[in-house]
Design a protein around this nucleic acid. Sequence first.
DNA 1: TCGGGAAGTTACCACGGGTAAGAAAGAGAC
DNA 2: GTCTCTTTCTTACCCGTGGTAACTTCCCGA
Lengths: 205, 205
Amino acid sequence: MTRPLTRRPGRPPGGQLDVSRDAVLDAAERVIARDGANASIDAIAAEAGVTKPIVYDRVGSRADVATALAERLSERMAVAARAALDGRGFTRSSLASFIEANLRTVVDHRDLFLYVTGGTTDQTSLGRLVLAEQSTAPLSLALVSWRKRVGLDPSVADSWAYGMVGMLQMASLWVIGSTSADPRVVADQLAELLWFGLVGERRPD
Amino acid sequence: MTRPLTRRPGRPPGGQLDVSRDAVLDAAERVIARDGANASIDAIAAEAGVTKPIVYDRVGSRADVATALAERLSERMAVAARAALDGRGFTRSSLASFIEANLRTVVDHRDLFLYVTGGTTDQTSLGRLVLAEQSTAPLSLALVSWRKRVGLDPSVADSWAYGMVGMLQMASLWVIGSTSADPRVVADQLAELLWFGLVGERRPD
DNA sequence: TCGGGAAGTTACCACGGGTAAGAAAGAGAC
DNA sequence: GTCTCTTTCTTACCCGTGGTAACTTCCCGA
């Protein structure tokens, strides 16, 4: 809303509008961070200083916006996870750090996470699976190569990847909504479960 | 839509309308099963043979409808799980049966699951957490009593319960949307992960 | 100088959740 | 038996949101 209120229709002067796809997505993130997960396309357009059809031209439908933001969020989660691991091997401790990094990233982008995972009913499954598959695909690959290396059946990779991502998403949702759930503790406990299993004996890594 | 098309306003003759809350919810389930997860309140009302305000009187808002249906679905999942376990002890095999029963119940109620988990953005977290907490609460209790019995720290119960439920929900979503994912196989693989952990050695139960 | 395409804006439509206002039926009072 | 008041339901509406059509202006090239 930086523009004058009274405008006449038609193409405005000044050459092509300097609003890129990324600028629209930046605006979307700002609106979501400021006003919460129920952000409308109108609000995003206003924040970007453009009108609604521009958003549709630069990004696409609301589902496309959510998908693009899901890509951003999952990329950020991957970056945080890599930083947390920092070349450490695959141990129980590094697994906990990985989970904690993911949880903290979601906490830091609370409403973005809710926007991305909480699509309209139309494409609900799609909305959640987009964020999921951004994470499951590399995770599945990593699982396959690791299982092959240690001589175990790699066919479990897909199930495990989806399962672990689902576990992370639900834990994120819980941590977001609960005051008593501490990301560090939750991450440690989930790592315990994933590493040793329900009945596995605890042993130092 | 069993009623005549031309009606005049006002209270219709014949005493109080014989439409219970459960009847409305039954209608909602029929509409969802027939037309998919994007079912409107109008459609539900029409299916129940009433008008929209009746739905609001008997059940409540759309979020309330979703919550009520989530209770039904989780109850059905619990029944299926109990039947699958059938008094067996807590073993890897029974865990796989438990998971498979859950997956099959979701597959059998595909659109109901999507309707329940895919609330409007407003109350998204709530929508998913409702179904989740119906399952996490008893699961958490079971985990606490079991961990105490075998002399392990019971404080992990909440994290584990949310994690496992999230794992189940994501796996359900995946199984629903994928043609290649077989509930039996997926359940077995997830049980493997939960029972032995990522690095646990496989051993017969 | 003058089309014609490019680029945006306004205005609109459809639809869904939710509610207010009003109309008929029924129950009770006199 | 009639009159009024309450209950119970319907119609009709409001509002916000996603998505698009129509139209208006600018600019570039002939």
